[in-house]
Each structure stands twice: as C-alpha cells, then as structure tokens.
Simulated scan of single mutants.
Amino acid sequence: MSPELPLSARLAWWMTAWLRGDEVTDHALDAVTHGDLGHVVEGLPDGGTTLLDAFVAARRTGADRAGLALPVEGDLLGLGGPRELNDAALDSGEAVVLAGFALVPTVVGEVVRWRVAPAAPRQLPDVGEADRSMRAALVDSANLLADLDVARWRPEVADRLMNLRHRPALEPPLGIPARCVDLAARGLQGWSIVDLALEDDGGALSSYEIGQRRDALAPLERASRRAVVAACSPEVWPDP
C-alpha cells in the first residue's frame, strides 16, 4: 500500500470535518480531489453527480460523520451489509459508509466514479483496541521476520522495521483527533511493510518458506487495516 491514505479514507476524514463545520466547502473538496483525478458520483437520489452533491446529500440525511471500510475476502471490515454494498466494496477494496448509504470508488483512467449503495449499521474495532493490536502486530511480525532472516531476502523491509518512528506524514482536516492521525499513520506504515515484503518471493527456497513469510505477515496486514479503519471512522473515536 502507498503511504498515502486510500481514496475512501481521505473522503471519510474530510466529509466528516465538513459535516461538523470544521472545514469550509472549497477546502474540503480540494483536499479530497487531491488535484489529480476527476470525481463523479452515480446513484444519488436527487440525480446529482458531483462530490459537492454527495456532501449535501449526506447533510440532508442528518449525518454528522462518514466512516471507512477496507474489506477483503473473509473479513468485511467496516461493512454491515447489505450484500449489494459488500460485493461492490470487496471489488473496490474500500468504501465510505454514512448513515443509510455508502460511496464505493472505482478508478477509471483519470476519473474516480463513486457508486452510491445502501448501507446497514456496522461493527467496528474501537481506537484503543486497534491501537493495541497494531503495536502488538508490529512487534510480533518483526520478531517472526527476523527469525526468517528478512534482512537477507528483503533488506528494505528490515530497514523499515528498524525505523518505525519514521511514519507517513499525513495532513488531516481540522477536528480529527491527534490519536487517530497517529494511528492512521502507523496503520499505513504497517500496511506498506506488508506490501513491500510480498512484492515477490525474494529468494525463497520452497513453497513452505513462502508460506511461512505470508503467515508471519498476515496478522500485521489485518492489524494495519483495522488501525486505518478505526482512525477514519468517527463512530469509534475517543471523546474530545
């Protein structure tokens, strides 16, 4: 994974800040679009097709927050159904979940198409739980990868594990708790370590050794996704 927030995480943070009055419209929209892609929304009840239309639709429902989902097969993290949403979000790998509806992105060329889908209530790890899991997974994975001689087959991974204080620099909107910004950065850091380690089989001698490496990284991948979802889902943020 890139050390940048996924599209849906960025939208969840900035839409929440806008809905709560912490950020003005132009600043929020500029931050979400990031200046590099066009954004189109499909399926809003009033027929609107812009991100601003989606922001307004969210406000009309009475929403004061937008949260993140990062599902994979076997772990529908951040989703509560229905199946239409689950299937679309699994295909995309991410979604923004509001009260009653969700937005699922698909990148087509230089355009992000956000598809509207119904959304049911969901269960999430809270920030404290995700934080503890993230810290434990980093330590456990570092120890397991050291036993598997990560420095030999992926020296870049070893370097990152030795420099865990160097996290991605995120620029959150106003109103995001500092603890959640830190958790999101650590989640992205862990996820990027997993992706780097799994880029290829890096000198593995057998399918058994490859399996060992993947097993060692699985808890870190799961903890990293949970950390980013909790950090970008206001339902579980700590009280101010």
Rank of each mutant, 00 (worst) to 15 (best):
S2N: 14
R10Q: 06
R10A: 02
M15K: 05
A17P: 02
W18I: 03
L19F: 09
D26M: 08
H27T: 15
H27A: 15
A28Q: 02
T33P: 00
T33C: 05
G35C: 00
H39E: 07
V40L: 13
E42V: 14
A54H: 01
A54D: 04
A57Q: 12
R59Q: 13
G62C: 03
R65W: 08
A66M: 01
A66Q: 00
G67Y: 04
G67D: 07
G74M: 04
D75T: 07
G80W: 03
G81R: 10
D87P: 03
A89W: 02
D91T: 15
S92T: 09
E94N: 09
A95M: 01
V96Q: 00
V96Y: 00
L98Q: 05
F101P: 05
A102I: 07
V107T: 14
V108N: 13
G109Q: 02
E110K: 14
R113Y: 12
W114C: 03
V116H: 03
P118R: 07
A120R: 14
A120S: 13
Q123S: 15
P125M: 11
V127C: 02
R132S: 09
R135P: 00
L138M: 10
V139L: 11
D140I: 11
S141W: 04
A142S: 11
A142L: 07
A142G: 11
L144A: 14
L145A: 09
A151K: 12
W153Q: 12
N163S: 09
N163I: 05
R167Y: 03
P168L: 06
E171C: 08
I176C: 10
P177H: 07
C180G: 07
V181Q: 05
L188N: 00
Q189R: 09
Q189A: 09
G190I: 05
G190C: 00
W191E: 08
S192N: 08
S192F: 01
I193R: 02
D195W: 06
D195I: 06
D200R: 09
L205M: 15
S207Q: 14
E209K: 10
I210A: 14
G211E: 15
Q212C: 15
Q212K: 15
D215F: 15
L217H: 04
L217E: 07
A218C: 11
L220W: 02
E221R: 12
R222Q: 15
A223P: 02
R226G: 13
A230K: 12
A230H: 10
A231E: 06
A231C: 09
S233C: 07
W237N: 03
P238G: 06
